[in-house]
Amino acid sequence: MDLIVEGLRKAFLLIFSLDAGLMGIVLLSLRVSLTALLIGTALGVPTGALICLKEKFPLRHLALNILNTAMGLPPVVVGLFLYLLLSRRGPLGALGLLYTASAMIIAQSILAFPIVASLSYAAISAVPPLIRQAAMTLGAAPFQTTMAIVREARYAILAAVMAAFGRLSAEVGAVLIVGGNIAGRTRVITSAIVLETDKGDFSEAIALGVVLLSISLCVNIALYFFSRRGRATGYLWA
């Protein structure tokens, strides 16, 4: 119990003193996870829309099963495969990406993509067919019709993005393997917690844990606020 109390005390000291080491780790974590989330969303939403809305999409059920399975991909497995691809003797070794933030972003993008794609598919398929017909009868081109349908699913898609962010911010296996947990370069909150726990510096680990939880809470509150406001007014951002 003393360890936890001491850990919490140190956590608040570190946070409120804006400790440079801690800030570096936090900022890198945010950069990696938010960039990966952006990539996963940019690829995942169109993929979900394509599978749902394209008539005669080849092997639709197989594609959905693959996406649903990939939602539960173990991060260490993703990390391992990416490590083999990016290691010096791997097919992409020449790129020199192993143990860089870029490798961590790629790993987390792979984890985010199926979550966003699969949940976007579910969100878009729940939009009533009347919306498609309404857009078509008012003169929407096929792409504009798709955009009208995706727009109707925007709150559920936002929830999909929130779910993906939750997964990325808590992920440690993949970033540890492809990032290497190098201080100042690839050390993020989760990998730092693992290191500090191994070292027995529980207070530092708890401090990082508090920061991680705070970030998740802030992001979720912000997204919830936008979502609630959107449902009430019909506008997501305005």
Binding site: P128, Q133, A134, L138, G139, G234
Partner: peptide
């Protein structure tokens, strides 16, 4: 041609936004 004709269905597909935005939708497309 599609933009010169329109069909009002018995069940109107309502976009989840304001009445103004719903009415303006076809004009924005154009």
């Amino acid at each position: 041609l599609m933009r010169r004709i329109t069909l009002l269905l018995p069940s109107v597909g309502v976009f989840n936004t304001t009445v103004y935005e719903n009415i303006a939708y076809g004009l924005k497309l154009r």
